[in-house]
Design a protein around this nucleic acid. Structure first.
Lengths: 216, 216
DNA sequence: ACCCAAACGGACGGGGGCGTCCGTTACGGT
DNA sequence: ACCGTAACGGACGCCCCCGTCCGTTTGGGT
């Protein structure tokens, strides 16, 4: 008998095809309509039946996790670049702009990034690590006197949560709005130059992230 | 025969009672959970059946409109006071703070205020009038050089939309977050003092408001 | 005390979304 | 060309929400 090790089990071509088309569809649909888009919409967009979709990704969250792997890498890269920037304040600003842009280009990713799922999806871990690094970056930017001294990392969460409010709008307006919002945020985070000590900020909230989908 | 004009038709006491309790329940439930809260939750909270609720308010939007009449008046008052303030920039800041506070204290009102319902609820008209007045206020505050010259009224919409992003959080954190957010927004809207001309802002988006509930 | 109409509320139909079952299709190895 | 099995997809059950129907209760005028 020929020793045909079925290495990692043969994957049928149509199955692999469909998997790719489902992921593409998910990126498009979730990207434009957010995570509230029905699974069947993704299925229709991919040209497959609902059962096929559920066979490849047993649950909606599984699909979401796979769908936004690329954006997660982009997010990591943004943080890494920001930390490597020789000018911390410039790095900090670029980071805000890039994160906002990522979130504006994909409603679904923004939802996933900001939403603490009941089952801890690894987006949460990502965000924690990310925020830790941001803390380091912020410390440096404060030392150069360009980031306001009363800034705390939670303020970035605050602004990212606020950024979510811009997402219920068509793609073009959303991206423009996001850019202007980011610019205002950077303006707000910048240390007040010279004499005019800006009025002290109200206390920081203890933000625990949202559970918007499925809160029984 | 005695001429008993049934002036404005007799209203039975239990009916008037229930109507009041329904409105109270609606304020509580919609205020805390937003407009996505089920009607039956309002009914349960009011201790009545669903049919009773629907008899008093034929549709969800009718209930919502009645529920937030008071907040709408408060909003008008805030705008009026701001316009009457002898210091336009102070009036402008107070206005932002008061609107944010109103929105933070009632998720439902924030939703209703920011959401352009399919059927034009008069919230939309309110908002238009309000924004027109805000434009006047902004013009004055820019003349005193305290509001940045590149501010446009749409930027206020931008920030109010962003403020919505803070609402998926428990009441206490929401209010604190809202205050800090408002402070940052005011900081961002303030004109850069002295030499440091702040970097020019990206273009303003053409924001058409959201239709989040029921987009067929 | 009586009565009837106004008001109530449990139960119903309709719609939509999630995840699953099972009969059918078609890949790909021989 | 053939066939076994992996993969497919229409149809199903379940749950939640909105708004309505109809038999029952109760306010309040006589």
């Amino acid at each position: 008998m020929t020793n045909h090790l079925p290495r990692t089990v043969r994957v049928r071509s149509d199955a692999r095809d469909n998997r790719a088309r489902i992921l593409d569809a998910a990126r498009a649909v979730f990207g434009e309509e957010g995570l509230s888009a029905p699974m069947r919409e993704v299925a229709r967009h991919a040209g497959v039946g609902p059962a096929t979709l559920y066979r490849h990704f047993p649950t909606k969250q599984a699909l979401i996790a796979e769908t936004f792997a690329e954006q997660r890498r982009a997010c990591h890269a943004a943080v890494r670049d920001a930390l490597a920037d020789s000018n911390p304040w410039h790095g900090f600003r670029s980071l805000i702009e890039r994160i906002c842009e990522l979130h504006a280009h994909s409603r679904g990713f923004a939802d996933a990034f900001m939403t603490a799922f009941p089952e801890a999806m690894d987006f949460a871990a990502d965000r924690q690590r990310t925020l830790h690094v941001v803390g380091e970056l912020a410390r440096r930017a404060q030392e150069t006197g360009q980031l306001r001294p009363d800034f705390v990392v939670d303020d970035l969460i605050l602004m990212l949560m606020a950024h979510r409010g811009l997402q219920d709008t068509p793609r073009a307006a959303r991206i423009t709005a996001s850019r202007r919002f980011a610019a205002y945020v950077i303006e707000a985070f910048g240390a007040a130059p010279g004499t005019k000590a800006s009025t002290p900020l109200p206390p920081t909230p203890r933000l625990q992230l949202t559970h918007s989908p499925s809160t029984p």
